[in-house]
Design a protein around this nucleic acid. Structure first.
Lengths: 221, 221
DNA sequence: ACACATAATACTGTATCCATAATTATGGAA
DNA sequence: TTCCATAATTATGGATACAGTATTATGTGT
């Protein structure tokens, strides 16, 4: 049997580790025991180490020479640095997306937005989360800028390190939905400038919600 | 003797490979022979392979499963995608830098700018190139945003893949100098908005010069 | 009893080896 | 002569073994 996608083992391992990190099963600051993990996955240390190199380049782990590998700890300062950056980048995405979007693309976006609406109506948080991600992803793809896309995705990976990040949507589901409605409307109206600003503010609004949560639970971000 | 920076072998190898790629000694599209390189460096394939994983994450090489490693080929489209992005990012840097800069920082920048002026006066292209890089780097550091910095540096690495990139400054040395003068003035005057716009246009201007060169030499970028 | 030094243990980093898959070359058939 | 199939060679991916360094624990001396 010929495998369609002959992905290397180190890539699969990297992906599994990413998931464990994002799920906070591997919490920031924890040391990664190479031989224990290798044994656990039933592989040798070689592909595992290669996977760790990749994750280090993505900023998810830190490789201290002769000291081992540690899951990256993200600080409040990092969040303050990354969110405005993301706001600018995703704002740009929205503007470009509007300029490139064919009517079919807009229809597809509206379809995704409809799922967001229904998920919000039923209080299905997971589905809302899912549709939200999908919406942003589609906008980014519509921008047609491969590098803009990759920069955003890299930064989002780092954001996912924060425990608060995954929770931030829950507290402001209605507000997020409202913002999405406005963005969707601007896109449908082909108003690139407005879409850019709305998307930009949408991201910053997310940061603020996160800051409020942070104030309540004064543990490290 | 205790080594201050006990950098791992794979990091040194990665850096050496980066230099060879940037120097276009390893040209885009060429296949990287692992065992030949390992032999050449007098090391085993293991750290070399780890280094290649890192370079792949940076986008400098492409790892095709079971097919080997190839130096990334960058297209005209990629340049068109990256430059506006860089313009936006470096523009933001300039704005933030102005907001954060103490008088000492501005003095240091003016010092670097003076080196740029003198290099231009004497037609010392290498020195101009050097001072130019230094200037941009200082601005980026002054922005105080670690992530903005890393995103820009990652993208710049990719830009360096293009042969034209290193040549682009030569043809427009005077224009580049003029633009730098304006930027320096805006920074000195603490005009963040103007600095942002000037830096932004400075980058785009670089792209256009590159496009003109590209038109003359119609080989692949 | 506490502190410092030395030894032992454990983990990282590197090298070597093996298996599998891909590419190329050679031979045969149309 | 050309095209296809099969075999051989070569390179990639993974496993295992080894060396060197850091950390920790234990013992001795003050």
């Amino acid at each position: 049997m010929t495998r369609i996608a002959p992905t290397a083992l180190y890539q699969e391992v990297a992906e599994r580790l990413r998931q464990r990190i994002f799920a906070h099963e591997l919490t920031p600051g924890t040391w990664i025991d190479e031989q224990k993990l290798a044994e656990q996955y039933g592989i040798s240390r070689t592909p595992l180490r290669e996977a760790l190199k990749v994750l280090a380049s993505e900023g998810l782990v830190e490789l201290r020479p002769r000291r081992g590998c540690y899951v990256t700890e993200i600080s409040r300062q990092d969040l303050d640095d990354i969110f405005p950056l993301m706001a600018m980048l995703e704002g740009r995405c929205a503007a470009e997306a509007v300029r490139n979007a064919k009517s079919g693309d807009i229809a597809a976006l509206q379809d995704i937005h409809a799922r967001l609406e229904s998920a919000a109506r039923d209080g299905r948080i997971d589905a809302f989360f899912e549709a939200n991600q999908e919406f942003h992803k589609r906008i980014q793809e519509l921008s047609g800028n491969r590098w803009l896309l990759s920069v955003i995705q890299d930064l989002r990976k780092v954001l996912k390190l924060s425990r608060l990040h995954s929770l931030s949507l829950e507290g402001r589901l209605q507000q997020s939905l409202d913002e999405h409605r406005l963005i969707m409307a601007a896109v449908a109206a082909s108003d690139a400038t407005k879409a850019e600003k709305l998307m930009h503010d949408h991201l910053l609004s997310g940061r603020e919600a996160l800051a409020r949560m942070d104030a309540k639970t004064p543990k490290a971000a």
